[in-house]
Design a protein around this nucleic acid. Structure first.
Lengths: 142, 142
DNA sequence: TATTGTTATACTCTATAACTATA
DNA sequence: TATAGTTATAGAGTATAACAATA
């Protein structure tokens, strides 16, 4: 009995995405180890910097995470003094985030490391290929 | 102080890959929950089916995992009686894998569920786009 | 010495469920 | 009732380090 016409593991797009993700994650972990931050933590710092006052629910939606998962990440950042929480607006349930001075400094440093990390990732593509890849990936998570 | 010329979070390819990966993983978890298998476990079953006698190191290399990580996954499959281990060839260090009858049956069932899952994933692309996406992703992990 | 398998350990991410406070 | 945040808990994936057996 053979597997003719049954499809190979190579045709599984999910596997390709998973392998690519793993490769990127490993390179990040190595290259950005000196920051002591994970990809997710940097994403949150970046997001809050771009839009101070962003709430937990906003962050969860943008990064497509559970609220509880978001909590854990924010907690770690708060514990390190990179981010503070404060009531946002008239709705007493909503708590907005702001970066501390230390958080801003850390983000600047992270941006340098991530710039290098992204350069390593992108160097294998032309500008046109990068645009194509970004647009195709977008269709998956949007 | 503004961020003109500094690059936006949207330009981070690593983030797009991460979001796409998360979306695919969540859909797999929902759609394939009845199997009681994770993506990794199915990959290992599939791999061993395609090449009986495959060793732990082979699996680790193909799926780009640590040997210890591979162990944990294989252990779970062995515990459920889907896979057995046996000495492979003359090298007494190498242990090859084979699927049991139950493992073969489980793989058949998994293939159906994964076919549907992949159809959901791929329906948003044309055949040509799929080829492009696969080739671009390949350049990252190969 | 190098490779293969193994175990122990630890950390991140992820999600669920149950809870409190506010709208 | 619905939403925002919180906490506890658990499982999966990942990696490191140290070890035994074999090449």
């Amino acid at each position: 009995m053979d597997d003719a016409g049954r499809g190979a593991l190579d045709d599984i797009l999910g596997l390709r995405i998973r392998l690519a993700h793993g490769t990127v994650q490993r390179h990040f972990a190595e290259h950005c180890a000196h920051l002591g931050l994970t990809q997710k933590q940097v994403s949150v710092l970046w997001l809050v910097h771009d839009a101070p006052g962003t709430t937990q629910t906003d962050v969860a939606r943008t990064l497509q995470m559970d609220r509880a998962t978001t909590m854990a990440i924010v907690h770690a950042l708060e514990k390190r003094g990179l981010l503070v929480r404060a009531r946002a607006g008239s709705d007493a349930r909503r708590i907005g985030f702001r970066l501390t001075q230390g958080g801003e400094r850390m983000l600047e440093e992270a941006r340098v490391a991530i710039g290098e990390h992204e350069a390593w990732l992108k160097e294998r593509f032309t500008a046109r290929e990068l645009t194509t890849l970004s647009r195709l990936l977008e269709r998956i998570y949007q």
